[in-house]
């Protein structure tokens, strides 16, 4: 198995099997009805079939939270880890087996709060994987506590008089980290854009960070307010190198051309939290991928014995 990932997105090993969306289906998801996680799961299954990913060579890694149940509802390999630590696990998977296709599913508490150190460093490692931030601006599984992305003033069980601090901006933070290579935002309520974004993220060679705007039907159902019903309130970032989803062109009148290679503009657009923007903020495939940088020649057991003997020689008396 070659350590290089240069071709694996385009050509898999010979495989005469054909996979339908149903081939990736796991048990019935136990999320609440109306939860955005369902749309993400559907879009992911569609992506897997679209890319004909072999279930046995695909790994979904997650942390803890509602959205982290994700791998259980697929029929690929999965690692449902601990709170905040999906990225170290997935980094280990890729270092050990660079040929596996790895997806990481995290919630906002998982990624932006308890796992923030790993998030920042994962961007810098730029390991080739797709990282999905399912951001519903609240801790749902533990019943409505303030998360770092909860808007200021929003009432929760831990901060009933409203969240004290301005919400953290995950896009701005991601774009500020050395080696950021793919940063996009999409929304659970625009399935075509969600799918197109996942597709672009998967095709990107490097660490693809996708923030998916979601509502929690129980605790943040009102979160994006009118923007959910009125696409005119959302600005779509468009570019032929960006997220291309022709089927929604007519739906969104408000479009802004943005060249995803322009980091300064990407940062300016991300920083402005008054406008909901969907699209590809930034992409740069020139950054080296950590697992390739660290890829090493494979030695047979006999080779290793020979090298070990050389090491013993160094310490020999």
């Amino acid at each position: 198995m070659s350590g290089s990932c240069s071709v694996f997105h385009l050509a898999q090993e010979e495989d005469d099997r054909h996979f339908e969306m149903g081939d990736y289906e796991g048990p019935v998801a136990r999320w609440c009805s109306g939860c955005g996680d369902h749309s993400v799961l559907t879009a992911v299954r569609r992506l897997l079939a679209d890319e004909q990913l072999q279930p046995e060579n695909t790994v979904f890694v997650s942390g803890i939270g509602c959205s982290s149940r994700f791998p259980h509802y697929l029929s690929t390999y999965g690692f449902h880890g601990i709170h905040g630590r999906a990225l170290p696990l997935s980094t280990g998977v890729k270092l050990s087996r660079p040929e596996l296709r790895v997806f990481v599913v995290m919630g906002d508490g998982d990624c932006v709060s308890i796992g923030a150190a790993h998030w920042i460093h994962a961007i810098r490692y730029n390991v080739d994987m797709v990282a999905l931030l399912l951001d519903n601006n609240i801790y749902g599984l533990t019943k409505k506590q303030t998360s770092p992305t909860t808007p200021q003033g929003y009432s929760t069980n831990t901060q009933p008089r409203g969240s004290y601090l301005p919400a953290m901006n995950p896009l701005e933070a991601t774009l500020g980290v050395t080696n950021a290579s793919f940063v996009a935002q999409t929304a659970e309520w625009v399935p075509a854009h969600l799918f197109a974004t996942l597709k672009a993220a998967y095709r990107h060679r490097g660490f693809s960070f996708v923030r998916i705007l979601q509502r929690c039907p129980h605790f943040t159902a009102d979160m994006y307010g009118e923007a959910v019903k009125n696409p005119g309130m959302v600005e779509l970032l468009v570019h032929d190198q960006g997220i291309v989803a022709p089927e929604i062109d007519a739906m969104f009148e408000h479009k802004r051309p943005h060249d995803p290679s322009d980091l300064d503009e990407a940062r300016a657009l991300a920083e402005d939290m008054n406008q909901i923007r969907l699209g590809l903020f930034f992409r740069d495939e020139s950054h080296p991928r950590y697992e390739e940088t660290r890829s090493l020649p494979h030695h047979t057991a006999a080779d290793k014995i020979r090298i070990l003997e050389e090491e013993f020689d160094r310490y020999a008396v």
């Binding site: 890694v61 690692f79 170290p88 980094t91 280990g92 270092l95 150190a117 090493l296």
Partner: peptide, 22 residues
């Protein structure tokens, strides 16, 4: 590979992820 992780927790996680996959 010697992976110097961002913290002690991540070092454990990377090792477990690597073991899990191989």
């Amino acid at each position: 590979i010697v992976h110097q992780a961002e913290d002690e927790i991540a070092a454990a996680g990377v090792a477990i992820g690597a073991s899990y996959a191989g």
